[in-house]
Design a binder for these strands. Sequence first.
DNA 1: TATTGTTATACTCTATAACTATA
DNA 2: TATAGTTATAGAGTATAACAATA
Lengths: 174, 174
Amino acid sequence: MTDGMSESLTPTELGAYFALIEVGGLLRHAVEQQLREAGDLSYVQFQLLARLGDAPGGRQRMTDLADGVVYSRSGLTYQAQLLEQRGLVTRSPSPEDERSTVVALTEGGRDVLGAVFPGHIEALRILLFEALSGDDVQDLARILGRAADHLRANPPRSAAPRRRSERTVGAPRP
Amino acid sequence: MTDGMSESLTPTELGAYFALIEVGGLLRHAVEQQLREAGDLSYVQFQLLARLGDAPGGRQRMTDLADGVVYSRSGLTYQAQLLEQRGLVTRSPSPEDERSTVVALTEGGRDVLGAVFPGHIEALRILLFEALSGDDVQDLARILGRAADHLRANPPRSAAPRRRSERTVGAPRP
DNA sequence: TATTGTTATACTCTATAACTATA
DNA sequence: TATAGTTATAGAGTATAACAATA
């Protein structure tokens, strides 16, 4: 365990942490219902489609697509299969590196994204942004952006040194 | 929705939203590993134990326990069963209202909580608070606290309402 | 009738390990 | 050897609906 030097967090830190988890969970859960109804998408599937929509050419390699969305390779394969079966994406080997699979958004994928997005935006406004000021939103974006960078870059250095677990936050090793 | 009043979110709003979801997910995922290793707890189980630990007398009704942690009654029953089987909580009918079940933290439950907490704190410090200033943390707690209040006040809760969840944000079903 | 909680069931999702193939 | 991705499989978790009991 930790070697004695683990002071507790401040009440403010604890509050921020619990609020973060709760808001993330409630928001995601609420928004997932909208996504399911409007486009029969799970949240993960929506995220994958949205990332592809933002990517140049609507295409990305599997590995790059996984970032922060899915925590195992097989999980991504599973979701990509579902999306491909519905015709929302295609998968094809990369010409440059034949090991890689390039996932590309289809027209149908863009349609679903377009069908889902307005309601998504509206839900976010009602559920979250209605309660926040412009400054709040700016602060939130800045702080959480920094936190996200930190988490993505986080080296293993786990706080649980038992069992020699060398798991990275974003990318489990084979 | 499609009637003109659905302006898109600002880039800052979108950034805050995506960062919120990503940080929540990454943090929860990372911390869950620590909880699993240190005390064989899922995150939900940890939250339930932690809430009981905070509650006066270490006891709460099932319904009150669910709040913001679990989104269906049966889900809570399932988790409570697991915790009871491991001897970390007890369940007993409430004397006041015989419909209610009171869940109480056992000594063993407190032990597990105690065994898990230092590493949990340490993980949070490394994963999250290391990257944030004191002001950041205060802002975060304030803003997310407000967001949590707002989300709780609106009813995206499917744990409490039974059949009457027509207050959802998404489009009506076909 | 409405509320509290449980059960039965079906389903989604996730993770680990073994595997193929390319680099 | 290392990397990219797939497959097989098994387990955990979730949601819905039907149910019983109490208010």
